[in-house]
Design a protein around this nucleic acid. Structure first.
Lengths: 329, 329
DNA sequence: CTGAAAGCGCTAACAA
DNA sequence: TTGTTAGCGCTTTCAG
């Protein structure tokens, strides 16, 4: 069923049919009605591929995300919602560790996407450059843009971690372990540095440990590691909520109490962090707002390389408790 | 950058460039090499939209899922992985409650998808019929096919729920509340019926309650409802894991112990069910296997309307405990 | 093995 | 306001 078929049925030209669907205002009301009837009767739907080929706009946004982790699933839900409200579709590309990212990028580009949301630090500068060179709009999500090649939308990692660290200091914690995801990831690095610096400033000692790529499992492993070594900190800061939840389950599984024996904080504000079993103290990213900025940026004619930093909110849960000291310093 | 540009650079015809990428075997090795070099130099990537228009195959699978719930996120991750291994892409469409599903279907079809995975019971028979009529392959996932219109891939809901109910009976439970999601959904109905029937057969009383559409919140509400009424059952069966997790958090939040005061079971086997804080007793769907069947069905030339029932596995967690009775009957 | 040519279904000048 | 026309970039006969 093509616009030609509908045209002959309605006794108009193919162009008129096309116009009724793409710019209805240019068609006389009576004609429009006749065309719409003929189209409805035949279940005609304009071919988006042909439209793309001619108009050079696909209304498709490509999304490249790691295949693991709760955080991005949360983001994808919101992104699909907002894109579809803006008449755009989401073409999804995931990859894990060893996957061929160059192949993924080739595939994204072959579909003539109107824009790409990049949500992984595993993508190199060269790879980002490939997309930018092909004149496709790119926005980095939840990570600083590679070498100022593209705009990015990020939470205020440093401010958030500082806030959490200060909270731990204020509640009397004196030794902290920071559990990271992948140290080479800029986001992880930023969060870690901010936490460490803040703790340092207040004379609180901190250590860094890192275990594996799957966040929840990494948290579990980190907890097991801490327990086995015997020297427990009085607080653990997770680089993300999912890591923190793993840490909590690991510690509790070993018979320890969170927060009585060890306090735990997260970062992101995923839905699970609010679940009753955890009620995690964390710093919530305003995902809806971040997605809105992303969608807006992608829709712009010309793209700068600004970094949009979106302020999150401190969430006081029940995974941090006051430490009372007999004598301090 | 088009195949024409590459062609003139390599001194061959446009057709030869096209062949080098779509059917390399038909091109002489030497020519192929020259073309590939010219293409690489110019970062040429074949236009998938043009290919689709001509060949009538987009290599895109449309996926229609509800925007809420952990279960489908889990499925989507697996689906993207398997599709991309098969050289196909996933175009995502979500909707929530009041959204215009007909519009969503129109949109899916406009993109000339090679197939559609339908994963929601909110889609009517007429709507499924629309897709089938347009000769696009449809597979219903995790729900019986609408009126035998399409094949479907489902877990053995009845067998799974029977197993769970029998387990509750065997561990001495005498009063059970089943918490449903949306009673009109075929999947929910099947699960509820199977549970109730099994309990009946063993003389165990059961009630049914249903609260809201968001699964976790529904579970919380159900727990609050039960606690406020004062008459607690000795077990709660959730229609899904996410509902069950909400129930657990609700009960525990009210100061009750799961499983000591009330046992809880789920259904699905989502990752969170295994998290240490819950360790839910449930029936796990073999999602990877179900997705594999779906991808296979979608790839078939002709589609029947078979229902593929995939056997899941009982997962013994720590949310059900033995009930000891002083005297029974 | 390679080239010429037609056309997939649509948009966008341009003419009428 | 509507029709005519020329492609968008590719696949696919059909010749050579």
């Amino acid at each position: 069923m093509t616009s030609h078929d509908v045209a002959s049925a309605a006794g108009v030209s193919q162009a008129t049919v096309a116009r009724t669907f793409s710019s209805p205002d240019l068609v006389a009301p009576a004609t429009k009605l006749r065309v719409e009837e003929a189209a409805a009767l035949r279940a005609y739907i304009p071919n988006a591929m042909a439209r793309t080929l001619k108009s050079q706009r696909s209304r498709i946004i490509g999304v490249v995300v790691p295949s693991q982790g709760e955080y991005y699933q949360h983001v994808l839900t919101e992104l699909t919602r907002q894109l579809s409200a803006a008449g755009q579709q989401l073409l999804m590309f995931t990859f894990s560790g060893a996957d061929d990212i160059d192949g993924v990028i080739t595939s994204v580009l072959s579909y003539q996407v109107d824009g790409v949301m990049l949500a992984s630090s595993a993508i190199s500068i060269q790879q980002t450059q490939r997309i930018v060179s092909s004149e496709v709009h790119v926005v980095s999500f939840n990570q600083p843009a590679a070498a100022g090649l593209s705009p990015s939308v990020v939470p205020d990692n440093a401010a958030g971690m500082r806030k959490l660290a200060e909270y731990l200091v204020a509640t009397g914690h004196r030794s902290v372990v920071f559990v990271g995801g992948v140290a080479t990831a800029p986001t992880d690095k930023l969060r870690h540095q901010s936490a460490t610096r803040t703790l340092d400033e207040h004379g609180v000692s901190s250590r860094y440990i890192e275990v594996g790529a799957h966040p929840y499992a990494a948290g579990l492993d980190a907890a097991a590691h801490l327990v086995s070594k015997g020297r427990l900190p009085d607080a653990v800061m997770g680089a993300s909520d999912e890591i923190a939840l793993g840490v909590i389950d690991g510690l509790r599984g070993a018979g320890l109490s969170v927060p009585d024996d060890v306090s735990v904080t997260g970062f992101d504000g995923i839905p699970q962090a609010e679940w009753g079993a955890y009620d995690l103290t964390t710093y919530s990213q305003p995902v809806a707002e971040m997605v809105r900025h992303t969608v807006d940026l992608l829709a712009q004619d010309t793209l700068g390389s600004d970094e949009v930093v979106v302020r999150g909110t401190f969430r006081q849960g029940k995974t941090v408790s006051k430490r009372e000291r007999i004598a301090d310093a």
